[in-house]
Design a protein around this nucleic acid. Structure first.
Lengths: 209, 209
DNA sequence: ATAACATCTGGACAGCGTCAACATAAACTA
DNA sequence: TAGTTTATGTTGACGCTGTCCAGATGTTAT
């Protein structure tokens, strides 16, 4: 059995990771529209059906890219949180801004991550990635003053509300439905102001509950 | 020149509308994944390249379906509003529930509508459809007590906040990320409760501002 | 009647995902 | 060490896809 994709020594050495990197490069350059297994293989310098041995089929590659995308999304949220002042509310807002930042920086990956519905047939890896992201957000929300406790079922509703708020902004941004007065693309500053207001709106609603 | 797709009299009579109907049927039955121009043509009983004369290419058909999708979405919102009590806040919540209802009932159409980014190269019809939906929501939000006036630039931020909240729920629902405790698909009742709470949360936040 | 036009068909082409047969390199076994 | 099994990658084929092009057919205008 191979050392599970670490050091070289095989035909290619680490084709699995090379294909994932090629896939991300392809997504970044050409978007999700013309995404093709053959192009990814060509970019990695292997034959058109080499990926099959590592991912089974196209859905398998997409699934693996979605797993990585979830982790990258979570990382961006955490990176942005690290720059926030030491306040639960500020950290939550920063996390949401990281969410938007990732969606704007990697639109194709973002759409790919949420394009494949999480169903029972989704890979365990993908479900684990989604769970990691959810758990992180849930911990953030639970740390808000006056928030439901970690084992309170009301926490789930609370978390989904914040998630939906951030996710909706991200999707509408990518769909081009959030724009300035003249219909031009919104800039980063305006995007942040808009989002910050919406999030604190929710927060003050929770406080007066 | 033909009477622009009304009464029969041509080879097929009203192929454009027939193709749109076939497209929607195809989306409803097989989803967005294997959607194909040739299948739509076959379903309408014409040759594989007949659609080109009405929509140019695949993107043209998708664009036209998105225009109809926007109108259907708006219609669902309005239908749901009509069942609400005569109160601005209740109408807004009902509108959002209509939004979710449409997404759940026609997931493929919903994803198609928001999958094609609104850009400068989008058809005028599509932008007009989006504007109709936005204007309707904006009127609803403006009618809330204490809301910014119709010409106040702050109204735009307010509207986008509500839209993002509803849209995020819809997308997360379709992505399978909103589920019950056991991970099972959430039922209609629970979905409504969740959404109603999130929306009124935003409302009370606005009131205490 | 004749011309111009809109509409639809059928064939061709390259690119796609997937499959099966084969080749090669590594790892295991005896 | 020698032989076998497994993992990895290549090649060629298949049917399906979107798009283009040449032609056929029906409608409208002159």
């Amino acid at each position: 059995m191979p050392p599970e994709g670490k050091k070289p020594g095989y035909h290619h050495g680490d084709l699995r990771n090379a294909l994932l990197a090629a896939g991300e490069a392809e997504l970044a350059q050409s978007g999700l529209a013309g995404f093709s297994l053959r192009k990814v293989a060509a970019r990695a310098g292997v034959s058109h059906s080499a990926p099959a041995h590592h991912f089974g089929d196209l859905a398998g590659l997409i699934d693996a890219l979605a797993v990585r995308g979830f982790d990258q999304l979570l990382a961006k949220m955490q990176a942005r949180e690290a720059t926030a002042p030491d306040d639960a509310g500020e950290r939550l807002v920063a996390s949401g801004l990281g969410y938007l930042e990732f969606a704007a920086a990697h639109p194709a990956v973002f759409r790919l991550v949420f394009g494949t519905p999480m169903r029972a047939n989704s890979s365990a890896d993908l479900r684990a990635g989604a769970a990691r992201a959810y758990d992180h957000l849930a911990a953030l929300v639970a740390s808000l003053p006056g928030a439901p406790g970690a084992d309170d079922p009301a926490l789930r509703a609370e978390v989904m509300g914040y998630w939906a708020q951030a996710h909706g902004f991200a999707e509408l941004l990518l769909s081009g439905h959030i724009c300035g007065d003249a219909g031009a693309r919104i800039d980063d500053q305006a995007r942040e102001t808009l989002f910050r207001e919406a999030f604190s709106r929710r927060r003050s609603g929770a406080a007066t509950r």
